[in-house]
């Protein structure tokens, strides 16, 4: 498999009145074609901002995106003009969002909204793009697709709307799909259906998926590679198996300890991570996790640990891994 997306030293800073907020702080990673990459982290850790920065969808100002390069299929997204980006968005890279209830325009038929993307990027006429929309609705498992394409968003349930969003995202056969917490707003059974659908379709369409979530269970079921983010930095990057078997960073370890496991000994208490994530306006010197880290030492307060290889295919930003 070849590299689809290479992000090198991505920085996204929001210039606000209160000061500069480094929402993404030196993130580097690589995604291969057809691969599913999970990004986990708590709220405000920079997961979504990373995704939006890659698509260059953040309003600038207040955001400022800098970085060495963001190579997508050989082209540097940071160097592109908005017109070039627009041609790429929806066509080669697509995105689905957390809340399916507000992701569709209430005044247009869903078929029209799917066809809109097709019409824009695939140079199809109204009839062909409509047919493509119906075909996509069928693919995402909407019964009676030909008829349902004529319905309005309010006539669909949350899970159905998320299916429609997936249909829009995949309608032009993109090579990268960014899913920003696609199942957070859905109940658990629907979550499972949507994830299954995404897995099946990404396989069928050969689409690489960047899956942003704070649900480690979703990661375990979907992703091949995982990035763990904390306070705008990558703290660990590895494959899914290693992440669960041998987490290197104390933060990853703490995360895994804080969720219930089926194979755990009975009556074992969950261990919460004490304290709060740092205020991005007043980032501590040194490791940003140090104030909450059980293994923190004097060095952690002074220096910022770089993301280095700690094992085979496993990188972690910690002076004292494992």
């Amino acid at each position: 498999m070849t590299d689809l997306l290479t992000v090198r030293d991505l920085h996204t800073t929001f210039h606000t009145r209160a000061g500069d907020v480094p929402a993404v702080n030196g993130v580097s990673f690589t995604m291969r074609e057809g691969e599913t990459l999970g990004i986990v982290g708590e709220s405000g850790s920079g997961k979504s901002v990373t995704a939006l920065s890659i698509m260059r969808l953040l309003p600038t100002p207040p955001a400022e995106i800098t970085g060495q390069e963001v190579l997508f299929a050989g082209q540097d997204l940071l160097e592109m003009s908005q017109d070039q980006l627009r041609a790429l968005r929806g066509n080669k890279m697509a995105m689905i969002f957390q809340d399916p209830m507000t992701s569709l325009n209430p005044v247009f038929k869903v078929g029209f909204q799917i066809a809109e993307s097709v019409r824009m990027h695939m140079n199809l006429g109204p009839r062909d793009s409509w047919n493509r929309a119906v075909e996509m609705l069928d693919k995402v498992g909407i019964p009676n697709a030909a008829r349902r394409a004529n319905d309005y968003p309010h006539e669909f349930s949350g899970g159905m709307r998320q299916r429609v969003m997936i249909a829009i995202a995949l309608s032009c056969n993109p090579s990268l799909l960014i899913a920003d917490e696609p199942t957070t707003a859905l109940d658990v059974t629907i979550q499972a259906q949507i994830l299954e659908l995404m897995r099946a379709l990404s396989k069928e369409f050969q689409t690489a998926v960047m899956l942003i979530t704070h649900d480690l269970g979703v990661i375990a079921g979907m992703a091949q590679q995982v990035l763990v983010m904390y306070a705008g930095r990558l703290v660990e990057a590895t494959d899914t198996r290693t992440l669960f078997a041998k987490p290197a960073h104390p933060y990853t370890q703490a995360l895994l300890h804080s969720i219930p496991r089926m194979d755990d000994a009975q009556n074992e208490r969950l261990q919460p991570i004490t304290g709060q994530p740092p205020d991005l306006l007043k980032m501590p010197v040194g490791c940003s996790f140090a104030p909450r880290c059980p293994k923190a030492q004097a060095r952690c307060q002074r220096e910022t640990p770089p993301l280095v290889e700690v094992g085979a295919g496993q990188r972690a930003a910690c002076f004292f891994p494992y």
């Binding site: 969808l57 627009r86 995105m95 992701s103 325009n105 247009f108 993307s117 824009m120 829009i168 995202a169």
Partner: peptide
């Protein structure tokens, strides 16, 4: 700020089209 505006931007809709197609009708 509604998500469908952001969503339509992710499929490459230009600002003019967003205003005409998504904001005005709503």
């Amino acid at each position: 700020e509604q998500q469908f505006i952001e969503a339509s931007r992710t499929i490459g809709t230009s600002s003019n089209q967003i205003i005409l197609r998504h904001i005005l009708p709503n």
